[in-house]
Computed example of a mutant assay.
Amino acid sequence: MAEPRHRYSTVSLLLHWVIALAVLAQVLLITAHEATEGVQAREFVNLHKSLGLTILVLTLARIGWRMANPALPLPVGLPRWQRWAARAVHVLFYVVLLAMPLTGWLASSASGREIIWFGLFDWPLLPISGGRPVAGQLMDVHEAVMKLLYVLIAVHVLAALKHQFVNRDNVLRRMIPIIPRRP
């Protein structure tokens, strides 16, 4: 019988942390965009769009990987509501990480604003029209989903810290293998 896994695969770890860092970079890019004007502001938003579409692709890869490589089991003795909450937060993360770039892509497409992926090639626009009014509505959804993302990140981080420092059950070590294993 195979020994049970105590940490996620290298692919899972890479996808998790690359997406997490990309999301952080997105926040910094849009903040920089809002704090500047003109050409510099457009550069920040173009990078934001490119990175957003990259997050979309990476999230699709992560979902595919997750389907082929199921998550590690939750700790024994975890209350049912915490099991449900853990699964709900992870599913909502996938929904949000798909919805955010899709609504941004749809908004750019509706307004006819080109997307040049990291200055390398034109990303195709989606067949949607409606101009600025539709793009504005899509950006409202984009921003609402962003707020949900912030809540999910807070819940996720707090839960990880609770497992590490209160439960002391090695759950955080699954995603950060350099943390020493607790007996």
Rank of each mutant, 00 (worst) to 15 (best):
R113F: 15
F93S: 05
Y94L: 12
W84Y: 00
F121D: 07
P127H: 02
H156I: 14
R113I: 12
F118L: 14
Q82L: 14
L98Q: 10
M139K: 13
M146W: 14
V89C: 00
V96N: 06
A135H: 06
L126F: 04
V151A: 13
G104W: 13
V91C: 00
S109H: 12
Y94G: 03
V134W: 04
A99M: 13
A160V: 15
M139P: 00
A107H: 09
L126G: 01
A99L: 15
I153F: 11
V95L: 15
L125V: 10
G130H: 05
A86P: 02
I153C: 03
L161G: 09
V89S: 06
L148E: 06
A144D: 03
Q137I: 07
A160D: 08
A110Y: 03
W81H: 10
Q82R: 14
F118A: 14
P79I: 13
P124T: 11
L78N: 07
L138F: 11
G119K: 10
V155A: 13
G104N: 06
R132E: 08
M100P: 11
W84L: 04
G136H: 06
A160K: 11
G131I: 14
D122L: 06
F121H: 01
Q137D: 14
G119P: 14
E114G: 15
W84R: 07
A85S: 13
H156R: 05
L98H: 00
L149Y: 05
D122Q: 10
R132D: 03
L102W: 07
Y150V: 01
A144S: 15
A85N: 00
Y94R: 00
L97H: 09
A160L: 08
Q137F: 08
L106A: 13
A85V: 11
S108P: 06
R80M: 12
S129C: 01
G119H: 06
V141D: 07
P101S: 12
S109D: 12
S129I: 01
I153L: 14
F121W: 09
A135N: 05
W81V: 13
V91T: 15
S108C: 07
R132P: 00
R83I: 06
W105C: 05
P133V: 04
S109W: 02
L138K: 14
R80H: 06
G131L: 14
I115D: 05
G136S: 11
V145H: 08
I153Q: 03
K147R: 14
E114H: 07
H142I: 05
G119V: 09
G131N: 12
V145G: 05
W105D: 03
V145E: 01
L120M: 09
L97T: 11
P133T: 07
L92W: 11
L126W: 02
L78K: 15
S108R: 01
K147V: 04
A85Y: 01
V141A: 10
V91M: 11
L152M: 02
L125A: 07
A86Y: 02
A99W: 09
T103G: 02
G119Q: 10
A154E: 00
S111H: 12
V89W: 09
W123K: 08
L148Q: 06
Q82W: 02
L92N: 06
T103C: 08
W117I: 04
H90T: 04
A154L: 13
G104S: 09
L152G: 13
I128G: 02
H90W: 02
E114Q: 13
R132T: 11
Y94D: 07
V141K: 03
D122G: 08
